[in-house]
Simulated scan of single mutants.
Amino acid sequence: MAHEKIFAGIPMSKCMRDMCKEEDYVFLNGQTKPDKTTGYSMFQDSEWQQQREERLRRRLEREQQEQERQRELEEQQKKKEEEWKFHVSKLASERESLRERLHRLREFRDFQKRVLVQDLGLDPDKPNEKLTQLLMRL
Score class of each variant (00 low, 15 high):
Met1Gln: 10
Ile6Pro: 14
Phe7Tyr: 13
Met12Gln: 12
Ser13Glu: 10
Lys14Pro: 15
Asp18Val: 06
Glu23Met: 01
Tyr25Ala: 13
Phe27Ser: 08
Phe27Asn: 07
Asn29Lys: 10
Gly30Gln: 07
Gln31Tyr: 06
Gln31Gly: 04
Pro34Cys: 01
Thr37Cys: 09
Thr37Phe: 11
Gly39Leu: 06
Gln44Lys: 09
Ser46Phe: 07
Trp48Glu: 14
Trp48Arg: 10
Arg52Asn: 11
Glu53Asp: 14
Glu53Lys: 02
Arg55Leu: 05
Arg55His: 02
Leu56Asn: 03
Arg57Gly: 09
Arg59Val: 00
Leu60Glu: 12
Arg62Tyr: 04
Gln64Glu: 08
Glu66Met: 07
Glu66Leu: 11
Gln67Asp: 04
Glu68Tyr: 00
Glu68His: 03
Glu68Ile: 00
Glu74Val: 04
Gln77Ser: 11
Glu81Gln: 14
Glu82Lys: 04
Lys85Cys: 05
His87Ile: 05
His87Thr: 11
Ser89Asp: 15
Ser89Thr: 05
Lys90Val: 09
Ala92Tyr: 07
Glu96Cys: 09
Arg101Trp: 08
Phe108Asn: 15
Arg109Asn: 10
Asp110Arg: 07
Arg114Asn: 10
Arg114Ala: 15
Arg114His: 09
Val115His: 10
Val117Lys: 01
Leu120Gly: 06
Gly121Phe: 00
Asp125Val: 09
Lys126Pro: 15
Glu129Cys: 08
Gln133Glu: 14
Met136Pro: 09
